[in-house]
Design a binder for these strands. Structure first.
Lengths: 210, 210, 210, 210
DNA sequence: AATGAATGAGCGTTCATTCAT
DNA sequence: CATGAATGAACGCTCATTCAT
């Protein structure tokens, strides 16, 4: 799971291209050209185009997992605070790695690659586990309702974030941002909107209070 | 926009394959073989592989629009009832055309095909318009809150439905269905869960009551 | 060798297209479309695309031969007058059927079609025969030199006419025609130039006098 | 404009095949097979079949131009001697590159390829320019007539050479060569005949003396 | 007599990968 | 360690032709 400088550079370029044109729609020549390397290098460094994708998943997913784990252990926060932090964390993560998120969404539907599938499943499982743990904590303290469908909750979070980021342009067509506002300003706006929206939803789901 | 029997058959097979392997990952030979026709027929009937995809979008999207339009005009229903019906309608539609929905999701991210993009945009716009109309009706009757972010609402609905259906298998691994339960039974279960879940969310969003 | 109205119409269109894009470069669909008939008609009427070409050769070559034959029998003309008439006749014929001439030139170099080849050979033979006869007549009357290479003479006539008509545009770029002069006016100009030029050459070849 | 050993080999084979079957009639698979290489190599080396043709034109035309240029500068020769040398040079060149000449003739009539067309035009212009220069020299020395149509003159040269070489077989059917005479012996014979014939014609055109 | 549907073969090109150096 | 040349397979598409009606 350790990559050389060159490999990381290739991964980054591959990520951009896969996101823009899809895995099948991106040729190794595209990647090689953009990376300023020989076509043969992709096979040389990663074994195959398929394995390059696997490497991308391992690299990106691996780097994500760590931060969330620590959150749950923090004793100074209430369960709901933890949930809210987790939402912010997730929104932040997706918006920051939009390209990889795109790839994840499409590959999830199409790929038969076992390595990719297992990476994805592991990630999903961990997500559900984490939230389940947080919720149980809140239930023990009588702060959350008894019956909560965690999977559905997670689906709402992931789905809403996905749908919102993927249709970001559409959103700004209906709600035009102030003239001259930068792309990164818009990103911050979207993040805030998402955060507030999802937190409100989760609060209802968990506490039954609006 | 009228298709012959043969064309419809090809569209159906193409839909299955595009959903399973993506547009780029599906060759016209794949389609031809599964449809029991000659490769040349795809070009013969649709002009090109690209135009076959466009035809698929036009055919599927066109057939959907009608039912929703009538809903809003029904004077015997309260605004919330209409919203709830619309949710059921949407859930039903997606679950029934899962394959096309898959294609829509992936192509939306990747395609540069102007015809496909415009079909998609038009569909999204119509969705937002319809719901906006419903909400305004509710607001006039003082049944809904004043400030509702319709786009975010729609994103939650679409995103949740998508995330749930696309991860249906994952769901049943965590919540095993009774042994021997059929696939269509599971579909009904998912539909009900989605319907209840989203209705609850929308009620809060619209009325501020849990 | 008898063609129906429809067949003649197809032949005419095929002639135009073959001249413009070559035999291989022209598809039966091109022809059918331009003729407003079904693709199947080409095979139906002529048997095949190849046989359509054969038919074109037979039809066009057949119609040409007749006029020249009479020329030689005319007793009121001197041998040189006959030669000059023959030159005019040839120039006229080529310029009038430029398209077919184009096809003849290209197919001559490429085709392996035995029917086409034999049509061409027969035409060439007849040309040489005719001129040989005329020259012998002149020699008998001591008006022409004894040693004349008829084939080379014919080559110069055919070659010059061909090279001139095929480069007609190039010619008018170097010698711009008066502004507003029509295409048919230019054709007449080219005809006259060719006629004078070749007659002068032939006179020298045949009589050794400039 | 520099080609590798392999590229030159492919160009040579392509030249033979294009001459024999035409550009459209020759498939890249034909070329690849005859060259003992993979089909993909044609695209790899030249970009496309079309560009292979362009490369052929550039390579062949480029190599020709040089020799003629020097001729005109030679002060020790009279204008008529120069013209005669130029004729020999041209005859020699065409007979030596008969295949390319064939391709030139056919493509000239059919191609829409702008690169090929411009190569051809440039070549024709240079030819006319060169001869014009030679003739002016002769006119200044009062050795040539005042009114000479250079384009028509060049047309006669090119046309006669073309018509003669392209019908070489036909010629030898009418004037059978001695039994056992080789092909190259026949070529020399044709060259001599052409040289004498055209020189005689040009002499008349230029000096009005037979 | 004439057609539209359908076919199989072949087209030029691009693909991911391999291999000799 | 890295490369550029080369490969075979597959790509989407067009071709002339056939055949049932």
């Amino acid at each position: 799971m350790e990559f050389t400088e060159k490999q990381l550079q290739i991964l980054e370029i591959a990520e951009t291209l896969f996101a823009a044109k899809g895995f099948e729609g991106t040729s190794v020549r595209d990647i090689a050209e953009k990376a300023g390397i020989n076509v043969a290098m992709i096979s040389y460094y990663f074994g195959s185009k398929e394995k390059l994708l696997e490497a991308l998943f391992k690299s990106r997913i691996g780097s994500v997992q760590v931060r969330m784990e620590n959150l749950i252990k923090d004793q100074s926060l209430s369960p709901l605070q933890k949930i809210n932090l987790l939402i912010d964390e997730y929104v932040e993560r997706v918006l920051q790695h939009e390209n990889f998120f795109k790839i994840m969404v499409t590959e999830q539907l199409i790929t038969k690659n076992p390595s990719v599938l297992s990476s994805l499943k592991q990630l999903k499982l961990r997500n559900v586990e984490l939230i389940t743990q947080l919720i149980k904590e809140g239930q023990k303290k009588n702060m959350f309702r008894k019956k909560v469908d965690v999977v559905m909750m997670v689906n709402t979070m992931i789905g809403t974030v996905w749908q919102t980021t993927m249709n970001r342009d559409f959103y700004f067509e209906l709600h035009p941002a102030p003239v001259g506002s930068t792309d990164s300003a818009n990103t911050i706006l979207i993040k805030r909107k998402l955060s507030i929206h999802i937190k409100a939803l989760f609060k209802v789901i968990l506490t039954h209070e609006a």
